[in-house]
Design a protein around this nucleic acid. Structure first.
Lengths: 64, 64
DNA sequence: TCTATATGTAAAGTATCATTGTCATAGGAG
DNA sequence: CTCCTATGACAATGATACTTTACATATAGA
């Protein structure tokens, strides 16, 4: 499951640590999700969507 | 994390087994998700959204 | 009553998510 | 060069997600 986290972070000039802090997860989790090593849980996906002010479908993509 | 699975199934007159078959998961998984014992993984949430033709946000609710 | 379908729950096992701790590399600033 | 930040990755551990098998209840129909 692909995602647009890296681009969305870049648009806001947030480091992985910045995003992790806003999500209240570890930096390693942000890195693992961003690099596609695993997908977030559904509740975390909702928090990610909230932090960026987007729908889950606008961040995570069905392809791949 | 609440969800509208029971209502959406009823609208389509699908049993838990019907939905499980469409999702390619066990009936017990559908039951567990529907009764709130656990949340689906993100990929499964996408499949659920696809099966109902809705957005994830229209099926799973932030409240609770 | 007997049978079939639908639903809820439990135990036990495997796979995935998320954590902490650690290491390594690259780039910029002093 | 040294220090700091950012990023990527791995191991070990605990928590969740999902599986199969199984048992229980309720309801509807012949």
């Amino acid at each position: 499951m692909k995602n647009r986290l890296k681009v969305l972070r870049a648009e806001r000039d947030w480091s992985q640590q910045d995003l992790a802090t806003r999500l209240e997860v570890s930096r390693q989790s942000v890195n693992a999700i961003e690099t596609g090593r695993y997908d977030p849980s559904l509740p975390l996906a909702f928090r990610i969507a909230d932090v960026f002010g987007l729908a889950i479908e606008e961040i995570f993509l069905r392809e791949e």
